[in-house]
Design a protein around this nucleic acid. Structure first.
Lengths: 151, 151
DNA sequence: TATTGTTATACTCTATAACTATA
DNA sequence: TATAGTTATAGAGTATAACAATA
């Protein structure tokens, strides 16, 4: 444990740096456990899982949550759609908007991937106590909560 | 606070997702407070600060810490070097290796940027208690500690 | 006028392979 | 043989602008 007191600040004191360092670990694990075997990018997996959690969600809303541009979200949805993992349908209420839904194939795939990922997370965090693991997720969630509520 | 119990897992339970969401916030803040005004990418800022913390560090070691390829680190160092923010010098002990040092200009710039960043972090985390802020950084550090020690 | 979504395009960043020079 | 660093190059990803269709 580092007690910083009056010493000069280092990168360890910078939140963004700690997030990047932590992400390096999770990204590598994602790639070997999910990315490679399921042929999914992190964004693709997240997109699928979010559609699963929120059926009929629109591309625009996904773009905001994922902090991706609208051309970006179109491209990702194109890719996933061409793999028959999700389906676009026109909104009846608003002719401009679309609703997204997972196919059975997409649903199965993201479900398997999610399980792999949870196991992987447990391994990555195994040097933290159970309480610390929960606390870490809680605090990250609370930190991002402010942003989420503005979407 | 979410108590998950036996409900199905969501993205909120995935560490990598929480890290990405948190990073979206810090990245935006970095860009407006440091990236734009100082014309620095996150990697560039981190690279400079790490050289500052560890004078004579080698490009290879930086590449490992930042999880960047060696061609990648060469390119970043080239850029920063051409802006006269750091200097390469050949190692006397090992003819292949290099030592990196910040110039006065580089040192001043990264110092100013770091201060801006710490203020920005405080604002971003202002909806967490002081204890939670410390805890978040502590836990992220502990999580990444295992990886760091393997470098 | 504002919003949803698409297309086109340029740019940044990354990743791989092949090379040099030192050890 | 292995390591430090560079060069060249292809590919993935992102961002901007311009557009069509609907509200």
């Amino acid at each position: 444990m580092k007690t910083q007191k009056s010493t000069r600040a280092t990168m360890d004191d910078v939140l963004g740096y700690q997030l990047v360092q932590a992400s390096i670990a999770t990204n590598k694990a994602f790639h070997s456990e999910v990315g490679k075997p399921f042929d999914l990018r992190p964004v693709e997996f997240t997109l699928l899982q979010l559609v699963r959690e929120t059926p009929d969600i629109s591309p625009t809303r996904l773009a905001k949550i994922l902090s991706v541009t609208t051309p970006g979200i179109t491209a990702w949805i194109d890719k996933l759609s061409s793999r028959a993992l999700l389906i676009r349908s026109k909104s009846k209420a608003d002719g401009r908007a679309q609703h997204l839904k997972l196919t059975t194939k997409g649903s199965r795939l993201v479900d398997e991937a999610l399980q792999k990922l949870l196991v992987s997370d447990a391994q990555l965090m195994s040097h933290l106590t159970a309480g610390e693991q929960l606390m870490l997720l809680e605090l990250l969630g609370k930190f991002s909560g402010a942003r989420q509520s503005k979407l």
